[in-house]
Amino acid sequence: MAQAAEIGAPPARQWRQSTVFLYLRSLFALAIIWSLIALWVGNHVILPQPTSVAYELFRLVISGEMLVHAAVSLWRLVLSYALAALIGIPLGLLMGLWPWASDLLDPVVEILRPISGIAWIPLALFIFGVGNELPIFIITYVALFPFLLNTMAGVRTTDRTLIRAARTMGVDQRTIIRHVMIPSALPQILTGARIAGGAAWMSLVAAELIGAPSGLGFAIEWYRQLLMTPKVIAVIVVISLLGYLTDRLLRWLQRRLTPWSTGIGAGR
């Protein structure tokens, strides 16, 4: 919503106000429908009123409980995301730059890639047990492939003319890689970063739901077992909000680092 403000021109401001208005109006209508259905269902455990969800959300935030769960989840997410980037980007560069590396590694990547991170959960449960290692392993695994494949593709699609031009001017290979190929691959690397971010959130929830003693995913399941549905929905709202903000942050980074890029999803 706030992004619309960046368009900036005076007529755009008016437009933005009306968009915000439309947004609120639609959500308000949704809340009323939800409330009516909740009245009709008449069971607080199955479908609580939106107001009681809002109240529980407020209480969870005020008591700091939500903060603790969110901090644990975010810490795991950031750690494994960084790990995936640290492994995926260099490996992708290697595979993009040298055909022998991609010949060797590509089959392994292609064998592992279709096996979703979630399918690793039972085996990882056995190896790591319930704890921090399981979600970190799963998220790193899931985020690794978008980083790797997009870096590789980005390096490979570097404009040959640019490389030849640099070579003609006597620039050595290492400098070409650093100053021509990496900048040219950056937009696609950042696209990979965004895909990795989305996939990471989804698997974080799954991994925590099944195999972690803490975190937001654990919290949903915990409150479900206690039949505290308003709290379950409150946690889901927070997960969605954080997922949304993560995506916004990555989009912002993409615009900031590669303002020239018009690539996939660089805009909205």
Partner: peptide
């Protein structure tokens, strides 16, 4: 009218809804 609703539900991870679905 519908886009705000779709966009609000889009970031909800499907797995996160599982406890509700079970309920």
């Amino acid at each position: 009218n519908l886009d705000p609703i779709i966009e609000s539900f889009r970031p909800v991870a499907p797995i996160a809804l599982l406890p509700l679905a079970i309920l």
